[in-house]
Simulated assay, not measured.
Amino acid sequence: MVQQYTKEMIREVFIKKLNEHPLNKITVKDIVRECGINRNTFYYYYTDIYALLSEIFQTELQTVIDEYNDTLSWEESFLVATKFALENRTAIYHIYNSMQREELENYIYNVSGTVMIRYVEKVSKGISATQEDKKLIASFYQGALTEMLLRWVASGMKEDPNIVIRRIGQLFDGNIALSLERSVNLKD
């Protein structure tokens, strides 16, 4: 219990610092000073700041996975994934503009993939589409959503993702099911 509290405190202080300073200006010394712990305690949990950052993204990905269920549309699931970014805009912007941009890109790509794979599986119930086509359809939407979200971050996260994501959902409504149905009729 104490370990979980300490890790959570380290995480919260790090996110707070990221919302105040660029990633390359944050040190372990800054984090441990604000947490009131020693450096050894930090290193007991994390090898460095980048391991901490990676764990934060893994935790956020797990949140999306845990909250996803068959009653959610892909749009609702994706909005769950943008919650952390909206609550920590400056931190996300600092990560995006750092040498650790790849960590953010991987997080977005993994979230998009998780959401779209599950959604395509849900829509494909009762449709005899091939597994290869299901993967291809999910991969296509994963790439498109990843790129859109990265462009949103790059532009300063000014647009409301709720409006954009819902609009995309309306514009492409039924396309996944239609693509799956086409898969049934396609011959190799």
Score class of each variant (00 low, 15 high):
87 E>A: 13
126 G>V: 09
122 K>M: 15
140 F>N: 08
122 K>W: 03
126 G>A: 12
130 T>A: 13
108 I>M: 08
144 A>S: 14
132 E>F: 08
102 E>F: 06
76 E>S: 04
89 R>T: 12
137 I>M: 06
140 F>S: 07
143 G>F: 03
122 K>H: 09
99 M>V: 11
83 K>F: 12
124 S>V: 08
97 N>W: 11
131 Q>H: 09
90 T>L: 15
129 A>G: 07
129 A>R: 00
108 I>V: 15
66 D>S: 09
87 E>Y: 06
146 T>R: 12
143 G>D: 08
87 E>L: 10
120 V>E: 05
124 S>M: 10
113 G>P: 01
111 V>M: 02
131 Q>W: 12
83 K>H: 14
104 L>P: 00
133 D>Q: 07
124 S>R: 05
101 R>T: 13
105 E>N: 05
74 W>H: 04
137 I>Y: 00
80 V>P: 02
99 M>Q: 13
118 R>N: 15
139 S>G: 07
82 T>N: 08
125 K>R: 13
118 R>L: 07
120 V>I: 13
102 E>H: 04
124 S>F: 07
75 E>A: 04
83 K>I: 12
66 D>V: 08
71 T>M: 06
96 Y>L: 12
108 I>T: 08
119 Y>K: 03
98 S>H: 11
105 E>S: 08
68 Y>A: 04
72 L>S: 02
85 A>S: 12
82 T>G: 05
102 E>V: 09
78 F>C: 03
128 S>H: 12
140 F>V: 07
142 Q>N: 11
77 S>H: 05
68 Y>E: 01
122 K>T: 05
98 S>R: 07
88 N>F: 06
65 I>D: 08
97 N>E: 13
136 L>V: 07
115 V>D: 03
115 V>K: 00
72 L>K: 06
127 I>E: 02
89 R>V: 11
136 L>Q: 10
127 I>N: 00
88 N>I: 07
134 K>G: 05
124 S>D: 09
87 E>R: 09
74 W>R: 01
141 Y>G: 02
83 K>R: 13
127 I>M: 11
109 Y>V: 07
103 E>G: 04
123 V>C: 06
141 Y>C: 03
139 S>D: 14
146 T>L: 15
135 K>L: 15
87 E>N: 10
65 I>R: 10
72 L>F: 11
70 D>W: 03
131 Q>F: 13
122 K>N: 09
76 E>V: 01
121 E>Y: 09
69 N>H: 13
116 M>S: 02
104 L>A: 04
107 Y>H: 10
144 A>Q: 13
63 T>Y: 14
134 K>D: 09
